[in-house]
């Protein structure tokens, strides 16, 4: 009889241990989702374009978690008729007579396009 009771007790504690591990694991995932565990660094800065002495840099994703476009391809106005809507937002640039538009719908997803416009290598960033 005692053997049966001991076995039940062991199962109870194994069950509790498994539950505890699951609570800790999901708790960790939830807290991670809130951003509490993001790596944060303080950088001393000496910017030319603004007067900020110190900024906080937070790691939100891994490198290339968002993939920049490094080999862009283009269409003419007539080739893009089906895909472009009149009212949609674009970033437009003109260099040496070369005019190009970068739809915000694409930039919102990829953030950066490395291109060459009018012979000048540029980074279109969003």
């Amino acid at each position: 009889m005692y053997a049966a009771i001991i076995e039940l007790n062991i199962k109870k504690w194994v069950f509790r241990l498994v539950m505890a591990v699951m609570v800790v694991f999901f708790g960790f995932l939830i807290l991670k989702g809130t951003g509490l565990f993001r790596k944060t660094e303080i950088l001393e800065t000496n910017f030319q374009t603004t007067n900020l002495q110190q900024v906080k840099m937070v790691t939100v994703l891994s490198k290339d978690g968002i993939r920049a476009i490094k080999s862009p391809t283009f269409e003419t106005v007539s080739e893009s008729i089906e895909e472009m809507r009149d009212s949609e937002q674009v970033i437009g640039v003109s260099i040496n007579g070369d005019h190009r538009a970068y739809p915000i719908n694409i930039l919102s997803v990829h953030e950066i396009v490395d291109d060459v416009v009018g012979g000048v290598p540029v980074a279109v960033t969003w």
Partner: peptide
């Protein structure tokens, strides 16, 4: 005469 970055059939909305 502008060019536009190719959507390759996607990017129909802004996330």
């Amino acid at each position: 005469d502008t060019l536009v970055l190719d959507k390759n059939g996607g990017y129909r909305s802004d996330p």
